[in-house]
Design a protein around this nucleic acid. Structure first.
Length: 126
RNA sequence: CGAGGCUGCCAGACGAUCGCAGGCGGAUGCGCCUGAGGAAAGUCCGAGCACCGCAGGGCAGGAUGCCGGUUAACUGCCGGUGGAGGCGACUCCAAGGAAAGUGCAACAGAGAUAUACCGCCCGGGGCUUCGGCCCCGAGCAAGGGUGGAAAGGUGAGGUAAGAGCUCACCAGCGGCCUGGCGACUCGUCCGCUCUGUAAACCCCAUCCGGUGCAAGAUUGAAAGGAAGGCGCAUGUGGCGGCCCGUCACGCCUUCGGGUAAUCGCUUGAGCUCCCUGGCAACUCGGAGCCUAGACAGAUGAUCGUCGAAUACAGAACUCGGCUUACAGGCAGGGCUCGCAUU
RNA sequence: GUGGGUGUAGCUCAGUUGGUUAGAGUGCCAGGUUGUGGCCCUGGAGGCCGAGAGUUCGAGUCUCUUCACCCACC
């Protein structure tokens, strides 16, 4: 009981070491990765052994508060989905129209995007 | 009661679940504590701190600009003076010098920094319908109209006509005296009547070295390179721009390090309370407190309750200000004006 | 973090030392020319100079504040 609880809790954590860092890494993924666009987002994915996530929200989206909000929404959603995703390097780029989107909308869009890119593990569904 | 003016404050709170960053403890993934703002913003000023051959002289350049105080410093703040607005409470003001010099003032107007078109008056001449008109010379600046501005205003005297030419009152400027630390001002006397513009050049007074935490320091594997000494002829380049001055490039010797990590990095002109001095800004002294420190960059998501949780908005070396943005709400006394009642 | 630049007609740009009424090209509209269209010729409309204050008699121009966009360096 307790162990299961702990495991469930652990599965939804999202520490900083799971994030993508360094300008060099970003440039590498941009050059080698596959891009999957959608209305408000662009996902760039590169296969790899480790699971790393990066977020890119440019100044075109809005001021610092708006950019932080979008980044937190994205991080929250990725945190929930993380264990069901394949390993590799992910970069989520926000497009300017995203500032109009609500959080629910964004969650659905993100999930659809990842399904379409076939990056969700099927065996984990049950 | 209505309208207004001033000063200050808050900027959702609480609970549950899942998460994030830092610190401490424990040793495995756990517990506890802490975790954005009044503007964190714009980067408009002023400093601290660090380095630059240690900061030098002159010119140029820049900033400030009523007075006094305050401060580490400031273009800030406080108090006053003067001016502008408002019935008033009160608010606002880049507010030195135009009598050192130069420039500019379109259009209009006769004339724009000194002038004479119309005009007024006198003398001479001519004409005459005896009202006056024309020409020449001399004087005047009152009236006309233009303009933002025509050079003091009004009245009286004076005169051929006039004029600060003289007088009375008023206005302005400068000077002496009174009060005040001072800006300035009361009153009297004397002299004068001078266009505006310095957010045009400028003059006067005061101040200013540069670069910025990606500063800089330490550790770190290879090439670049760095340090020390010697020499100084010129050239080239550097030291915020120029000149002076000064340094490097030349030779010898020694050592070695573009990316990364750690430090800088949060205890500081700090905050709260009491108190001394002061009208106040601020300050003397005492007590208590520790309050983000990341490095792709931490505060979020979902639900519930509180009437409704909705503004502007996110720390990046740190402070003091200024400016700008801002939903809604609260307090203070006391302040002003109007209406009504007593 | 630091420094710099631009904003004027639908678009691309001029606008001197403040001065009367802000220009040019292109685009638009109308007329002419042509059998019709283009080219060409003639005429016209379209601006409160990014916004707000201030200085001045007078501001696109000078000063301050502010907004947007762009660039450079470390």
């Amino acid at each position: 009981m307790e162990g299961k609880d702990r495991a469930a809790r652990g599965s939804e954590s999202f520490p900083r070491r799971c994030r993508l860092g360094g300008n060099r890494n970003y440039r590498y993924v941009y050059r080698r990765g596959k891009s999957h666009p959608s209305k408000n987002l662009v996902l760039i994915y590169l296969k790899g052994k480790e699971q790393r996530f990066g977020f890119s929200v440019s100044a075109k989206v809005g001021n610092a508060v708006a950019r932080n909000r979008i980044r937190r929404y994205l991080r929250e959603d990725v945190r929930r989905l993380r264990k069901r995703l394949k390993t590799g390097k992910y970069i989520f780029v926000a497009r300017p129209a995203i500032k109009m989107a609500a959080h629910e909308e964004l969650t659905r869009e993100l999930e659809n995007l990842l399904r379409r890119a076939k990056l969700v593990k099927e065996d984990d569904s049950q």
